[in-house]
Simulated scan of single mutants.
Amino acid sequence: MTAHALPPVVDAATWEHRLEALRAREKAATRELDAIAAERRRLPMVRMPDYTLEGEAGPVRLADVFEGRRQLIVYNHMWSPGQEWQCPGCTGFTSQFTRLEFLDNYDARFVVVTQGPIKEALAYRHRVGNRMPWYSTADSSFGADVGAPPDGGFAVNVFLRDGDTVYRTWHTNGRGTEQLSHTFALIDLLPYGRQENWQDSPEGWPQSPTYSRWSASKDIAALYGPASESAL
């Protein structure tokens, strides 16, 4: 990064002209996302087996994880056995979701499922100040069957319940999860963006190795965990 890594300075009329040109592309992207969402609503679905997961109150059928709602979003949180601090990306991603009650109006629920044993998973949830409902698939093939096997990556899956029958309607992983995050949406508005080496940025813009600016799980715990509450 140079000492003068700044966008060029122009008059207001030139700035408005460039902004309007960019806005036209942004609006086109919005319309494309609308079209993608419309196609998502037309996807077929796959019937799921009658899985049993482990919740805070004990074993629970997948159909009962919905808690009476018809739609369910599941974030499969990466889990490394024996580690005090789990995946910082998953920890940071799920720490965003502190107010999910609005999903009630859409007959939906959003939960975390992890391969970790339920007691360890709940302890970690408390340690990092996570507020989402957590379930364990340690004794079930559910995680592996929906793209998040033991020692595997993270994933987002969506399910629809019809009575006691559950169907899988959508799945994504990798950068496909970014659309659910407000962090990247806000960072991408900034003049310097994510400041990662892979991004297309003007010469002299600040850039760092990928992930180097992400908060560590320990840092997230310091901000949102029980120790942070006692400091208030």
Rank of each mutant, 00 (worst) to 15 (best):
D151I: 08
Q207N: 08
A5Q: 05
M1W: 09
A12E: 14
D162S: 08
S140A: 04
A28Y: 13
D188A: 05
Q83T: 12
E229M: 11
H171A: 09
A138K: 11
R161W: 00
P133I: 07
A63K: 05
D11K: 03
N197K: 14
Y51W: 00
T172V: 03
T30E: 15
A121M: 02
I36V: 15
D50W: 01
A222N: 06
D164Y: 03
A35C: 08
V146F: 14
V156C: 06
R70G: 02
I73M: 12
R42C: 08
V74W: 03
V112K: 00
S141C: 08
P202S: 04
A148P: 11
A28W: 12
R23C: 08
A144C: 08
W205V: 03
F184T: 06
R47W: 04
W15L: 15
D200H: 13
D200E: 08
G147F: 09
E20V: 09
R99W: 10
Q179H: 11
G193L: 00
V166G: 00
G153W: 02
A13D: 15
V111Y: 00
W205G: 00
N157V: 12
A216Y: 08
A138V: 12
L180V: 03
W15S: 11
E16A: 15
Y167N: 00
W198H: 10
I187Q: 00
R213C: 02
N130D: 15
R99D: 14
G55M: 00
G153S: 05
W214K: 10
C87T: 08
R42I: 03
E32Y: 13
A5F: 10
T165F: 05
N173G: 09
R70N: 01
D200T: 11
W79G: 05
L43I: 01
A148E: 11
A185E: 04
T169E: 02
W134Y: 15
A29F: 15
E20A: 15
T14M: 15
Y75E: 06
F142Y: 07
K27E: 15
F93A: 06
T169V: 12
D104Y: 12
W198P: 05
W170K: 07
I73D: 10
